[in-house]
Design a protein around this nucleic acid. Structure first.
Lengths: 200, 200, 200, 200
DNA sequence: GATGAATGAGGCTTCATTCAT
DNA sequence: AATGAATGAAGCCTCATTCAT
């Protein structure tokens, strides 16, 4: 018993680590396939293949296809939400927070481009939890801008959508012209556009 | 003889008109179902049912499901493209053209709201012909703005995405807050944001 | 009434002739399409189109697809049976009858190549009435050959199949090498092979 | 380590053997159903049922219905071609080779009677690869007969069709009178007829 | 746990046939 | 009687999910 528990203390973590490793590999594969093939045409078998496991293994780790997608979105969301919270945490000048926020989004996009294009797809229909949570943070940001008189109050209810629109504009441009702009330049452009517009 | 030719003039168009009527009904039903259920989950059988015809009839009018969707998109695209061209036709001041363009987009969106929100999904993955053609008109518009020094030249390559982003921002806001803004107000907001930004 | 019947005497035949003409046109078209596309892949709509009528008209003249095929086979069969009976009618020497029979088959094949390839298709599965009737005539011919000691009695039960086989051999060769042999040469070859074999 | 490699040697083949067994069962079922119902009326669902598997399983093993048929034909063809090649391999007198060839055909027909009678149908329209390959072997056989002066040179181009016709004649007879002739008798009759004809 | 073959509900599509004009 | 659009049963095929090894 004692031996057993000792044994468990040592062995479990290993197994768990392996187990988690497999799950992570599946999520990575899923992210790729969902992004490549689209939310619908991504086939479980291809995800398994790209993860180097069998279909059965996918189902050993995730309830079903939907749960896999949900977990994927959730894990990426958590990561992004965490970073966005950090960006919002410091008591910086509003514009700095804005830039920091955009930067975070673009960085996350850089490493999870695939994931974000998934999010953008689902964004239109019924908003996902992920999108909602990001929007909540944008709301916070925008309210700060308003209270600091850094944003136009006549646009108040539109501001979250506008900021999202500004970010998306740059993301879209980037999707179609990969590598044209460095990440910081993207953030800069988005903020400049959001605050000052494109009029001469 | 005379009767015959008269006959043809009358009878042919009748059947043709009925035929076209059926096709139109199917397209309308398809628009509804595609919008309700999504690009993927729309079932041909439901489209037929909602059009009040049998499945077979759908296939008498459209090669297959994909062709039906393509035709649907195409018909909406043609309609929008025509109106956008009209908006671009007059030699109005740039800002008027801009407003007119936005107005057209929002009006079109108003009458095909559900379906267009579906199309926006596919915009992310591979852009449709429809989206491409609209973008071409945006390019024209933007070039005019640049040549009239009405738009910031430092944003030149980004301007089409930015204008699209501004329109989408308002569309998104409208999707989530239906009826909050009248169509002309939407156009006004989009243009104001696009040209001047949201900074105070 | 009298007028009517007079009228009918004149008008009916015209109508009937037209009616028959249409039916004939459909049968000709059917023969072509059945032969081109095969017994199964021949589509009623294509038959109608090739006959220059609408689908509905086909169904005004024939109960259904199966009846159309049956009528087609029947009409060609009647024609062939008639001619074969003529070939068997004269009290000619056996070999002359044989040659005449073969000649008739090849001539019929020449004008209804399509039809016969239909027959050959159905021959294997369940023999059609048409094939059965032709075989009946071959049986007659063979019995004559046996009673005149012109055919080997040790082959007696096999002779009908052998004669058919000899005819088919030449038909097959002709299908693959169209125009290589004139019709009389074909008959000659078939008879020579049937009677004398291919051994040196 | 050793265990591992041993393991692989044992386990892999097991699954593979089961997999092949399933494929074979489907092919056997397909042969039956295609023969029973005809090339067209054979339903994939019935094939699956008769193989004791689900439809999906059929599609796990064969691309589609057409591929299943092709595989079936191919497997029967390979078998026959192999045996025909053996029959042609020995440097026997021509007539022995001929008899051996015919024997092989009839034996093969005996074990795949139903299916082959289906194949004969398609022989008329567009010849299958299978038929072509068999014909190629008949060509070889016939050329040998010619060079050994065992076959009539005036029939040269017709000989392959004639030999085929002689075989088919007996096959047809056999289809209509099952069990009347033993396999060797069939071969004997076919050869006798082919070489000497049916004339007294 | 991992494997991957088996499953079968459910979708798309075809085409002979009907029927209102 | 001709027309051809409408019908819908029936077939093929896909792919998420299960389960025996």
């Amino acid at each position: 018993m004692n031996t057993d528990s000792k044994h468990e203390v040592r062995v479990r973590p290993l197994r768990e680590r392996l187990r988690e490793e497999t799950a992570r590999a599946i999520l990575v594969a899923a992210e790729e396939v969902f992004a490549d093939k689209g939310l619908h045409d991504a086939r479980v078998e291809e995800i398994a293949a790209r993860a180097g496991v069998s279909v059965g293994t996918v189902y050993n780790h995730f309830e079903d296809r939907e749960a896999l997608l949900a977990d994927l979105v959730e894990s990426r969301r958590k990561e992004l939400a965490l970073r966005l919270d950090q960006a919002l945490a410091d008591h910086q000048p509003f514009e700095t927070q804005l830039r920091s926020f955009a930067l975070t989004v673009f960085e996350h996009f850089e490493s999870h481009r695939a994931f974000l294009s998934i999010l953008l797809q689902s964004d239109v229909g019924q908003p996902t939890d992920a999108m909602r949570e990001i929007r909540a943070r944008i709301d916070v940001l925008v309210r700060r801008g308003l209270s600091r008189k850094a944003l136009r109050s006549d646009f108040a209810p539109l501001l979250p959508s506008m900021f999202t629109g500004a970010l998306k504009a740059i993301l879209m441009h980037d999707l179609r012209n990969p590598g044209e702009l460095e990440v910081p330049e993207r953030a800069e452009a988005a903020i400049d556009f959001f605050l000052n517009g494109a009029g001469a």
